[in-house]
Write a protein that binds this DNA or RNA. Structure first.
Lengths: 126, 126
DNA sequence: TATACGTGTAGATGTCTGTCGACATGATGA
DNA sequence: TCATCATGTCGACAGACATCTACACGTATA
């Protein structure tokens, strides 16, 4: 067992006794209770989808693109580029992330690529 | 005028003519239309608050902490530490971000620091 | 009051990601 | 078919951020 693992095991034991004092329970270790519950949540598909969506909306420019789409229903890539003030490469990068997260949908018409909010993007943000 | 600025001005002009062809309008440049609209949105307090909240929820561990708080109503720092499986320093760091974004509230009782969801955190995530 | 304890803070570090320039791709039109 | 155009993709780089260790600060308890 490495030094790191010994240190981690010790930390875990300390945390366990702390939680025992807090809850007043005599359980061998309360840590697994919280850890397992958290792990179960983290594995759920719904949580994973929420995490992906939250990560996609974390960037201010992507959030701005979504806000613009809420007002216009449909925008082509160059219009979004004009709004965000970045290169088309960056626009493509951001819209790809939003698309993969299920926030927006895209459709190609001729040379132009149009983006709109996904159906289930009803509420939430300005 | 630097090379970069000349390049940027040229890009802007290209984008403007592109948008003219798209919209069929004869405006000197359509770019300011989208840019100004986007800038107006980006300045609004509501957008800024949404951006801060989105950024706070972007990290998977913070989202997990929020999910745990939705089930327990109130958790102390060490319980969150057990759930997330990180050091207490990292927990403190994350909870500070969530607090500043208005997602959670904190209250100190003796040695223990308790966290709960902010009042207006009714819906949204699992 | 001295010690143990729970938590916040500061600095260092490794990883992630937003951004750009350059090139590739698919569509339109002469 | 070749040129032009709108957009996607790739590689590189700088800045942001998550995480840790070490230390500081308040609180409770002997």
């Amino acid at each position: 067992m490495s030094v790191d693992m010994m240190s981690a095991a010790k930390d875990l034991a300390v945390l366990g006794s702390r939680l025992e004092r807090l809850t007043g329970e005599e359980a061998d270790c309360c840590v697994p209770l919280y850890r397992d519950e958290a792990a179960k949540i983290a594995r759920s598909p719904r949580f994973r989808a929420s995490a992906a969506r939250a990560r996609a909306l974390a960037d201010e420019r992507r959030l701005l693109a979504v806000a613009l789409l809420r007002r216009r229903a449909e925008l082509c890539a160059c219009e979004i580029q004009a709004g965000l003030g970045v290169t088309h490469a960056t626009v493509s990068h951001h819209m790809r992330i939003l698309t993969k997260a299920g926030v927006v949908e895209s459709e190609r018409r001729g040379k132009w690529m149009y983006y709109r909010l996904s159906d289930r993007e009803g509420g939430g943000l300005p």
